[in-house]
């Protein structure tokens, strides 16, 4: 069944790609809240702060869809381990706790 094959891969890929997008600041779109304008890819701030969170989500979503598409032939031959669907997101959450620790130890 397609959902059994692809959903654990999507969850794992989304988490890893989101972490990479956030750390490397790879955003598909940028929002400039003060002037209420959108821009493509990662843009420098324009007249106020810029927001990349929507762009990171879009990067992770598109990337995870591509990973699922690429892994489709592989999953037809081999069983995808179910634990990656929750284990990788859990590891990513822990990685964020580590990466953002500076906020809590100032």
């Amino acid at each position: 069944m397609l959902a059994a094959r692809l959903t654990p891969i999507f969850a794992a890929a989304f988490a890893v790609l989101y972490l990479l997008a956030e750390q490397l600041n790879i955003a598909l779109v940028t929002y400039h809240p003060r002037i209420r304008e959108w821009g493509w890819l990662t843009e420098a701030p324009r007249n106020g702060p810029s927001m990349y969170w929507y762009g990171w989500l879009a990067t992770a979503f598109v990337g995870a869809c591509l990973v699922c598409l690429i892994s489709l032939p592989y999953t037809a031959r081999r069983m995808v381990p179910t634990w990656i669907g929750w284990g990788v997101p859990l590891a990513t959450m822990l990685a964020f706790v580590f990466l953002l620790r500076a906020f809590f130890f100032r």
Partner: peptide, 13 residues
């Protein structure tokens, strides 16, 4: 922000 984003990606699973 990061936890809810990761949870969003986990929803299909």
């Amino acid at each position: 922000e990061q936890f809810v984003a990761i949870s969003l990606g986990m929803l299909p699973f």
